[in-house]
Design a binder for these strands. Sequence first.
DNA 1: CTGAAAGCGCTTACAG
DNA 2: CTGAAAGCGCTTACAG
Lengths: 346, 346
Amino acid sequence: MVEGRKRHPGSVGLRDVAKLAGVSTATVSRAINNPDLVSPELRQRISATIEQLGWVPDGAAKALATRRSYAIGAVFPTLATGDFARATNAVQKELQGLGYTLLLACSEYDAVQELAQVKKFAERGVDGLILVGRAHHPDLYRFLDKHRMPHVFSFVHDGQDEGVCIGPDNRKAMAGLTNYLIEVGHRTIAVLAQSVENNDRAEARLNGIRDALAIQGIAVRPQHMAVGRWTIEEGREMFGAVWDTTPRPTAIVCGNAHLAVGAMIEALARGVDVPGAVSIVSYDDIDIMSHLPVTVTALRVPSDEVGRNAARSVVGMVEQRPLPVIYEHVPELVIRGSSGPPPRPA
Amino acid sequence: MVEGRKRHPGSVGLRDVAKLAGVSTATVSRAINNPDLVSPELRQRISATIEQLGWVPDGAAKALATRRSYAIGAVFPTLATGDFARATNAVQKELQGLGYTLLLACSEYDAVQELAQVKKFAERGVDGLILVGRAHHPDLYRFLDKHRMPHVFSFVHDGQDEGVCIGPDNRKAMAGLTNYLIEVGHRTIAVLAQSVENNDRAEARLNGIRDALAIQGIAVRPQHMAVGRWTIEEGREMFGAVWDTTPRPTAIVCGNAHLAVGAMIEALARGVDVPGAVSIVSYDDIDIMSHLPVTVTALRVPSDEVGRNAARSVVGMVEQRPLPVIYEHVPELVIRGSSGPPPRPA
DNA sequence: CTGAAAGCGCTTACAG
DNA sequence: CTGAAAGCGCTTACAG
């Protein structure tokens, strides 16, 4: 007779609990998952037995039997920027409150890797996914579709119909920030942009700037456009790149907080008068901005709220019950010391 | 006859692959997990069939059958500080390379919550755990022990025997930083400390400072000791608290980077001459430190390496194969503009 | 309210 | 090299 594998000797299972409590495994299972179906007496006896044996239910077995894992996968581009880190923190907290576990991966802005990570998550049996942005590998959409995997796109929000998006409308927000500069009189505006490679948010922001400028019939001059990623170092260099040009920009819009901090610091280091000679504004707000010698005007994106709502939203989809969720997060324009009217023409 | 639940209609399983490929399920399983045991011909046919059907293996079933999840749980205090965020990123990357998935939780420096999170991870069947620090809920050790759960403690390293620790020796490192101040002549030293509540690293750092000072027969005066968490705001306030005292400190040691940045900024804002009037040094190094008008002397802790090695270490334990791992990470003292000899007595 | 038993989708010891 | 079948540890439809 074939025997198969044996149980691990030391570990206790549902069976052991049932035996010791003198009930069937079905009753133990019900006592945990559906206490109302079990008489108070047994319920009490069973929970005492569980305590006594220190039984830890086996999630894999449970997942296999119920076809539900109570796990959500999230793929962020990176955790090196504070916004995604804070969002991850919030996602985990919210999921935990809803009874879910977070599986985390970082794609490093690589769509192919993201696809592989999502497939891995699917193998792990996650009930749903949180992704960042709208632009993904084409196969990813097919995959999600085929496997009917509930998912949300975070840190984006736009007018499109497809998919659930939770976050700011990057384009609209950046247009708003640019409009603010236009309103106070700027016409010669430089841009320190993030690379748009595999980053639709960065692209949307760039488009937002162009939208706002185009209405005035203005475009960003090539020498006023610099591209980087998200370090202070780059921000400093990029400031130099657009500043040492003719004509000089009277304002600089930065695609993310680190570039903006770098630009601000470089301006200070060069003794450039901010905002007297040039205004600096930023998409995204971080702590340090309100503490620099010249504080930085920024669009405040509530990353933790975005994370929290993304979590609520996937869980709502998974459980097919509507949870109250905020879908669009309109960033607040926080005007600080780094922005003002352009210098008067000499 | 009792029927039990039915299979989900749409989904394809190993069985479907086997049927279509005209082989047994055992052979399909082998073709994936042990290709060498299967003839090239079948192997080829099977992988084509898998492709064709778009089969995604069921991790829960696999985990149940093998008693291995290829998942590692990590509990960090928070992701709000850059160090843990970068470490998390590195952990995930390394685990992925080793074929594992990361389950993540944040304890918010709460030992009870951490315990609950670890138990949850155990239910999920993680193969191992990465924790931060050495100080945990007493029940946690019992739990890990009872369930023979492989685990490592990260961001700590000390002379003790028990457990695998991966990171800097906080105490020794901080003593070294303090010694540097003593060597350049400081004797009146203030401390901006992190709260030691549920944070043994903070406590170790504090002890390191005291160790170094005690050798000189010096202690930190009560008015030179301030306690906070990890915001720039707090750092500013704490600077004020220790600065407006008699005697004035000639140097300030900060328990973490954000407090140090706050202190530096407050000093600049008050027009205090750094390092002429006071030196400021920090445990932990962050980007902004090398870009402030006065750059900050700091101990550089390589968070990502700590994360990477922690990941390698647990996996090594889980697989019972020795992976090359660095256990102690000696922080590098990066001397910058904010430190120097104390002012000469007037 | 409770139990006996089938089944979730894989893996693997055994036999060939 | 391959297959038939037991088993991993739970849940749940069915019967009582």
